[in-house]
Structures are given as structure tokens and as C-alpha cells.
Simulated scan of single mutants.
Amino acid sequence: MIRHLVLFKLNEGVARDEPRVVAGGKAFAELGALVPEVVSWECGWNVSDRPIAYDFAINSSVEDTDALRRYVEHPAHQAAVAPWTEFATWVIADYEI
């Protein structure tokens, strides 16, 4: 099993309540159910106000590295990620559990 973690940081001057950001969060909230390879899916906005905190997180899992590749290449994943390139940066970690 592979854990797929993603942490998003909104770009300077971008607010969570902007329509494009709200739509981006909604797209990720729905994504887990759209990709067959996803075994578990959680995502949400950070509730901490610490300066080092990221703004949005995805915590998901897939069966193996092949499933992870299919997830990343899935059209629903590509569509959900694309808008975020305009208003955020992110880091990922994929590890075996």
C-alpha cells in the first residue's frame, strides 16, 4: 500500500474564499470517488495558523506504485490539479505503509 500525501500552499495574495480556490477545494473533495485506484481519501483546509503551516492537504492511499501512476495520470486527477497551478504550490510524499 502506498500513502500519497500532498500539501498545498496558496500563493502570496491568494485567499481561500476566492471562487477559483473554493472550486479547487471542491474538485479535490470529489476526486477520491472518481478514481478507481484510490483506496482511501481525505482532504481539507488547514486549521492551524502557524507560519510554517500549509493551507490544504490531501491524505490518500492506493494499492501500489502502478496504481499511483494510474491515479496521477487519470483525467479526473489532471483536471482537478490543473487550476491549482495558477494559485498554489505544493509538495508531495509517497511512501509504503
Rank of each mutant, 00 (worst) to 15 (best):
2 I>Y: 00
2 I>G: 00
3 R>T: 11
4 H>G: 04
4 H>W: 00
6 V>D: 08
7 L>E: 07
8 F>M: 09
8 F>D: 05
9 K>C: 09
9 K>Y: 14
9 K>G: 13
10 L>V: 11
10 L>P: 12
16 R>E: 06
16 R>Q: 12
16 R>I: 03
17 D>P: 10
17 D>Q: 11
18 E>V: 06
18 E>Y: 06
19 P>K: 11
19 P>G: 09
19 P>D: 15
19 P>N: 10
19 P>S: 15
20 R>P: 08
20 R>I: 13
21 V>R: 11
21 V>M: 06
22 V>S: 05
22 V>C: 12
22 V>M: 11
22 V>A: 09
23 A>I: 08
24 G>W: 04
27 A>W: 08
28 F>N: 03
28 F>V: 05
29 A>F: 10
29 A>G: 09
30 E>Q: 08
30 E>N: 07
30 E>V: 06
30 E>A: 12
33 A>S: 13
33 A>L: 06
33 A>H: 00
34 L>R: 02
34 L>I: 03
35 V>D: 12
35 V>Q: 01
36 P>R: 00
37 E>Y: 00
38 V>D: 05
38 V>Y: 05
39 V>K: 10
40 S>A: 10
40 S>E: 08
42 E>I: 00
42 E>C: 08
42 E>Q: 05
43 C>R: 03
44 G>M: 12
44 G>H: 10
45 W>Q: 10
48 S>K: 03
49 D>L: 12
50 R>N: 03
52 I>C: 01
52 I>P: 00
52 I>W: 10
54 Y>Q: 13
55 D>K: 02
55 D>F: 14
57 A>M: 07
57 A>W: 13
58 I>A: 09
59 N>Q: 03
59 N>C: 09
60 S>Q: 06
60 S>N: 01
60 S>D: 06
61 S>N: 13
61 S>H: 08
63 E>A: 12
64 D>N: 12
65 T>R: 07
65 T>P: 00
65 T>V: 00
66 D>S: 15
67 A>L: 07
68 L>M: 01
69 R>C: 02
69 R>I: 05
69 R>Q: 05
70 R>V: 04
71 Y>L: 04
71 Y>N: 01
71 Y>K: 02
72 V>T: 01
72 V>Q: 04
74 H>R: 04
75 P>R: 02
75 P>A: 10
76 A>I: 03
77 H>V: 01
77 H>C: 14
78 Q>R: 14
79 A>P: 13
80 A>W: 01
80 A>F: 02
81 V>Y: 02
81 V>P: 00
84 W>L: 15
84 W>I: 11
85 T>G: 02
86 E>T: 14
86 E>I: 06
87 F>A: 09
87 F>L: 11
88 A>F: 11
88 A>L: 08
89 T>Q: 12
91 V>L: 12
92 I>L: 12
93 A>L: 15
93 A>S: 14
94 D>V: 11
96 E>L: 13
